[in-house]
Amino acid sequence: MKKTNIVLTGVGGQGVITAASILGKAAVNAGFNVFVSEVHGMAQRGGSVNCTVRIGDVSGPLVPNGSADIILSTEPIEALRYIHYSNKRTKIITDISPVIPFTVATGEEKYPDIKIVFKELKKYGTLFKIDAVNHAKDAGALITKNIVMLGALAGSGALPFKSDILLKTILENVPTKFKNVNKKAFELGLKSIKK
């Protein structure tokens, strides 16, 4: 009866949907039953994005409130926006670089103090902060930020299958010439959470 509920959040264009779909494929490769829910259409134009992946004995893709084992976010306030999925045991893994919404850019609204955001996240679960932007740059391409986050997810030990399977699935899903960059990004993510 084991279920693993993963919530992936971030900003449209950060590869959240791709990460969710790769994670789902990896779960299938590992022999699990899996559902992934995605967002398409208007939300992709820089909006807030949230996908869910459920692995194991589940019959649909939506994660109930307070039932996330992991919240994986490519942007700090986006982790907080979906905090209703968390419970005390939830692992919250987030990138540390804010992406400023345009309502903030135009001065209509304020981006909260990042320290307060992290403090708040700590209240609701176990927080892991990942400098995914820099790891992705080190790997050789900023767009691998989502892969760094997947590496961190694998490193957190919360997945019901081995990290090798996830890495293998990632490499199956990227063009040959980007395999090395993605491998490096994954490994940097994996290490970043372990230390």
């Binding site: 820089g46 909006g47 306030i77 986006e78 919404p101």
Partner: peptide
């Protein structure tokens, strides 16, 4: 059995989609 959802008091800015 579903627990009451956590609600944060920190006010978050909206992040609506925008023209690219």
């Amino acid at each position: 059995p579903i627990i009451k959802p956590n609600i944060s008091n920190v006010k978050l800015p909206r992040r609506s989609p925008a023209l690219c």
